[in-house]
Structure formats: C-alpha cells, structure tokens
Nucleic acid binder design. Structure first.
Lengths: 230, 230
DNA sequence: TCAAAAGTGTTCATCCTACACCCATGC
DNA sequence: GCATGGGTGTAGGATGAACACTTTTGA
C-alpha cells in the first residue's frame, strides 16, 4: 500500500457480453437485463458488477456471471477495457469487458426469473446504457474471429447436436448462409466429432444424426494450432 | 461520486510494450528501462505509469509514451488488462497494457539518454519484473496476428524503405524466412506502394529501389478490409 | 404421394509454394 | 573479374467455391 499511495484510485467494473444461440430463431441472442439501481435505472444493460479487493479480474468476471445466472464452467474470455473519461455519467469507472458463450437451454430457467434477465436476439437489440452497445459490437467481431481459429462454436450448443444445427449457428455468427456440402466436408475433415447412433427427429422427417465432441481429438488439434475456417 | 461509493477503488496503471525494428540485427527490439523507484528498483521493466483522474485510458497510454520517449503520433493499440491479485507485490494494481510500434531511428537519440531506456533484441530479453514477460509474449502474438490483417509493418520502418528491408521486418515478426519472389509478388499485388526514383546503396552494390506508401490506396484497402498475408 | 429437411461428389478457378538464374555495381 | 545482394517467372499441387439431385419418412 505504501509504495504507490500518491496515485489516484478508480472504480473498476467487469461487464460481460453473454452470447447464446437460439435454435428456433437461428439467431445469436444476448443476455440483457434492466438495471435496478441508479444511474440509468430501468434501462437495458449488460451484466456487470464491481471488482473486489480480494479477487483477480478473471475471478470477478466468473463470480458476477455466476451470481446472475447460476452458471459456472462457462467459456469466458477477456474482450477489452473501456476507460474513457465520461463513459459512465455516475462516476469515473474503468470497465473490463468479458464475453461469454453459454447454452441457452442450460440457463434460462432460473435466471430469467430471478434477475429479470432476458434473452434478446442481436437483430432486435435495444439501445443499451453508456458504451455497452460498443462493447457488444466489439464482442461480436471478436467472436467472428475466434470462430475461425478455435472450435468455440460448440460452447453454444448442447452436448449432442446435429450438423445442420451447427451450420445454423455458424450462419448466425457470420450472418451469412453457407453451403451445406462444403460445410459438412470441411467440418468432418477436421476429425473432431464422434457420430452417435441416434437421430434428432424434431426438425425433419428424415432425422439428422447426432454428433458429439471427441475431447481427445479436440485437445490434439488445439495444441497443433489448426485452422477452423468454416 | 455518490452512486458507487460503497465499492472499492484500485490503482490503475498503463504499461506499454514498445516494439522497434533494428535493421542491422534484422530483429525486433523492445524498449525497456530500469526502474528507478521501489519496488523492484533497478530491475528491467516495461514503460508504464499510473492513470490519472482527468484522462481516458488511451490518453494515458499516449501521455506516458510521450513523456518517456518524446514521441507522439505513434501506432498504439490496447493489448489486454492484467488484474491478477498479486501481480505487483507493492500493491494491488490493475494494469492495462498497450503495444506500440515505433521507428527506432526517429527515437533513440533523446530517450536513451534522458530516461535510461534501452533497445533490447527480443532474443536477448532479460527477465522482467512482475508479469511483464507475459505481457510481452501476448503482445508479440498480437503483433503477428495484426501483421496478417493490417499493413502495420510500415509503422516500424522509415518513410522510405526498400522491399528487402520490409521482408526482413516480416521475417523478424514471424521468426521465419520468406521466399523473396513470393513476398515481392504478393506485396506489389496489393498495390499499396509507390516506387521512388531513388536507390538505397548502403547494403548492396546494385542498390535496392526505395518505396513509399501511397496513403490513398492504403485508406481504400483498409476500408475494404483486405487480407495482408505475407 | 408429397412436402421438407438430410445427405452426398465433381468441376473449375484460384492461390500458394517451391525453386534457379541473371543483373548491376563497387572494390 | 568477382563477390554481393537485388531482381525476375513458371509449373504443380492444394484449397475453396459453386452447383443439383437423391433419400428418408411422417402426415
């Protein structure tokens, strides 16, 4: 404490951009909530909270996500730090933004009820407080970059998924349609998936085979630093 | 001030990883300095300083760079924020790291003298204080990624440069040798450079033609979001 | 039997890589 | 005249994009 005491101190917040994939609408959704405290009470906001003295920043991001959603073991990555002078009219706050990928189904039961959080499609995103819209924009770009270099898409789907479902997700991430033959070929060429002896029959008469990650192959590929362009 | 007063406050620092390219050694260098204050006085460190109340974080990064080097108008980009609990043994400090690309020649005169800063090749980097080595590692990776997506290499060279010089720089960034025919072909195909009627004669008998950016073409390409793989 | 989504191969153009020799010049 | 780094072209392989029809099955 003694060394740096002449310097000023700041509030440090952590804000999380939480992505989920809605299979019905085939669209990326954001988990947003209405602020129940001042300033900007009642407006739409990202999930956030303040850093505490006894925790690292990554820890804080996990704690806040867990408090608001009940989830842990979620894919999270630091995005960027926002430190403009007047970004929060309430006070000078430095915000370290994280983005998270979660499976909508695993989550929505508890949290929509308990905290007034809501899944909202990106295409219908309301105006957000402060610079939160800029945070979302940056997160979306980073997600698009990550999706090409790491197999993170799976974080947004249930453990069992079909190839058409995965394609739908990537189409949502990139906002463009993909050729299903090329998609399937490239995907399977990576040799990451294990085919299950079970079909998904909800969305078609014929049914689509379920697949699942092979965690070992996944690790191998990560180490080799492969390319995940789909 | 009133809204968030119950939350804790933190020292926020800005640390900069400053890259320069040394044409003699054909190697990337880092601008490092010996700390002249406690803790860890006398050890090697990145350039850094504390955020002030009246400036944004980007501003702070520029100010600190300017104070220590006298340079402004430098390519800087926020890298990552480091907020582990005990990263600085002196106190709890959140550090927002930036990386900067500067032209060694433009700089070294003043700053080596005034602040004890030194250009040190990455291959000979000494142990740095705290988590500064991890910062450098992350910066280097980001530089390699950036170099493939934006024409930032030029930030590290004088305004007039030759193609072999540029190739040497990219070889240093990627730590691998490149084929000069392929390099030249891809580079010129981007149609970014203007050929000058002047040769560089220091490093060869025949001499190499100087080139220069065409700022207009540069802007056009940036907007189109092109690929800069070399 | 038909509607609706799943699944399957081939062709063509493009891009990347590998590679070896001549050029200009100062000493 | 020779040593040194600058400059040039091509051929083969790999990769990515475009594209249309058959299969399955519940209603």
């Amino acid at each position: 404490m003694s060394y740096y005491s002449e310097h000023e101190k700041f509030h440090v917040a952590v804000d999380s951009i939480i992505f989920g994939y809605d299979e019905e609408g085939r669209e990326l959704n954001l988990l947003l909530l209405k602020r129940n405290f001042q300033p900007a009470k009642g407006e739409w906001s990202l999930m956030g909270g303040f850093l505490k003295n006894n925790e690292g920043v990554d820890e804080a991001a996990k704690r806040i996500l867990n408090q608001l959603t009940g989830l842990s073991n979620v894919y999270m990555e630091q995005l960027y730090s926002f430190g403009e002078l007047n970004r929060d009219p309430g006070a000078r706050i430095i915000s370290i933004a994280y983005f998270a990928l979660i499976k909508i189904n695993a989550s929505d039961l508890e949290l929509v009820k308990t905290h007034g959080a809501t899944w909202i499609p990106i295409s219908a995103m309301p105006q957000l407080i402060f610079d939160h819209s800029a945070m979302v924009e940056r997160a979306l770009k980073k997600l698009q970059v990550r999706a090409r270099t790491q197999p993170i898409g799976f974080e947004l789907l249930p453990d069992k998924f079909t190839i058409p479902q995965l394609q739908g997700l990537y189409e949502a991430i990139y906002s463009k349609t993909l050729d299903k033959r090329n998609f399937r070929r490239k995907l399977l060429a990576m040799d990451l998936l294990e085919k299950l002896e079970e079909k998904e029959k909800e969305s078609s008469r014929k049914g689509a085979w379920y697949y699942r990650f092979d965690a070992n192959k996944y690790q191998d590929l990560l180490k080799r630093g492969f390319n995940f362009e789909l």
